[in-house]
Amino acid sequence: MQALPSPQQLRYLIALAELRHFGRAAAACSVTQSTLSAGLLALERQMDAQLLDRDVGKRVVFTPLGDEVARRARVALDALEAIPLIAQAARAPMHGPMRMGVIPTIGPFLLPRLVPLLRERFPGMKLVLTEDVTERLLEKLSKGRLDVLLLAMPCMCDGLETIPIWRDPFIVAAPPGHPFAINMADVPLNRLQSEHMVLLEDGHCLREQTVDVCRQGGSWSGEESETAHTASSLHTLARMIGQGLGVGLLPRMAVDSGILNGTGVVTRSIEGGQAWRTIGVGWRAKSPRAADYHALAQALRALAPGDTSVSAEGDPAVASAAVGLEAAV
């Protein structure tokens, strides 16, 4: 019977493939660099194959075979690590660490209510939070560094199972004295195409969602303007609007949390078109803790404002994403 690689050898290989540095990979695996190197050499001898190109100096370069083995090692290790999780989930649902990723346009406004809710509903859960932009959270989730994400959809969520929870409408935010503030109770969607918009910087899904809303009203080139103002956070964006640098779209969640206090910014609802994002949870497809994540989503519905709760069938954007996901998996 052929000898199989050990889980530790797979961890060494994956860490080196991700970090491309022997010292950092060893630290990530909590071993010395010599131990990691020896483990990889033993793996190569065991497989009778060269996984690393050692003729390129100090750089870490994988052979084509090494890249393929590392890719399959991730899949194999995920499957192996899922076995005890299945038993744990059956024995003690919603118990133990729950590593949750949350995006910056949700975290500051929802966490003051989310954390006490989860402590009350699931006292055995040890919540570990990470805030980052969607793309990096998805990467951490795919590498097993996170368990579940609190997302704003639609998003590029290939490989995830998702549950929509509620809609978070977009609100037009305009500086004092702007025509929107003086003459309108609601802003028609097509009026946004002629406005100079203040946007979040690249990497925030809210930037793309803002652009999509504006383009519903017709052609809009504000995103490509070299004079467009960009902000790294919603708090900065709100203050830019307050200083008369342009008009912006803010999630109702942020407005209700008082982000505009002291800015003088005036808000108006949008009429016409689909002007909202959908708050939901996502996790790796076929995770053994799927039942826990469904329970988490159900608990989070208690935080939905008013009658904004949705299902995948009730939200066209999310339903479309779900169809794509089913086709992918």
Rank of each mutant, 00 (worst) to 15 (best):
P7N: 11
Q9F: 08
R11C: 02
Y12S: 00
I14S: 07
A15P: 15
R20T: 13
G23F: 12
G23A: 14
A26K: 07
A28T: 11
Q33A: 11
S34C: 03
A38V: 15
E44M: 10
E44A: 01
E44Q: 12
Q50Y: 08
L51Q: 08
R54C: 00
V56K: 04
G57E: 12
R59W: 02
T63G: 08
T63Q: 05
D67S: 10
A70V: 09
R74Y: 08
A82F: 07
A82D: 14
I83F: 09
L85Y: 06
L85T: 06
L85E: 14
I86C: 00
I86A: 02
I86M: 00
A87L: 07
A87M: 00
P93D: 03
P93A: 12
P97R: 10
M98Q: 03
V102S: 07
P104I: 11
P108S: 01
P116K: 10
P116I: 08
P123C: 13
G124T: 14
G124F: 14
K126D: 01
V128A: 10
V133H: 07
V133L: 13
E139G: 05
K143R: 15
L149F: 04
L150W: 11
L151Q: 09
A152G: 09
A152M: 15
P154H: 12
D158K: 08
W166C: 09
W166G: 07
F170V: 04
V172A: 07
A174C: 07
P175V: 03
P176G: 08
P176H: 06
P176K: 08
H178P: 02
N183T: 14
L189N: 03
N190G: 09
N190P: 09
N190E: 13
Q193T: 15
Q193M: 10
S194P: 02
L199Q: 03
L200V: 03
E201H: 08
D202R: 15
H204E: 02
R207E: 11
E208A: 06
C214L: 15
R215D: 03
G218I: 11
E223P: 04
T230I: 08
T230Q: 14
A231E: 00
S232L: 07
S232K: 12
S233Q: 00
L237S: 01
L237C: 05
R239P: 04
Q243P: 01
Q243I: 02
L250W: 05
L250H: 01
G258R: 02
L260Y: 00
L260D: 04
N261E: 12
I270Q: 09
G273Q: 15
Q274D: 10
A275G: 09
I279N: 01
V281S: 02
V281N: 03
W283E: 05
R289V: 15
R289G: 06
D292M: 11
D292P: 05
L296S: 02
Q298N: 08
L303T: 09
T308F: 00
D315I: 09
A317Q: 13
A322L: 09
L325R: 15
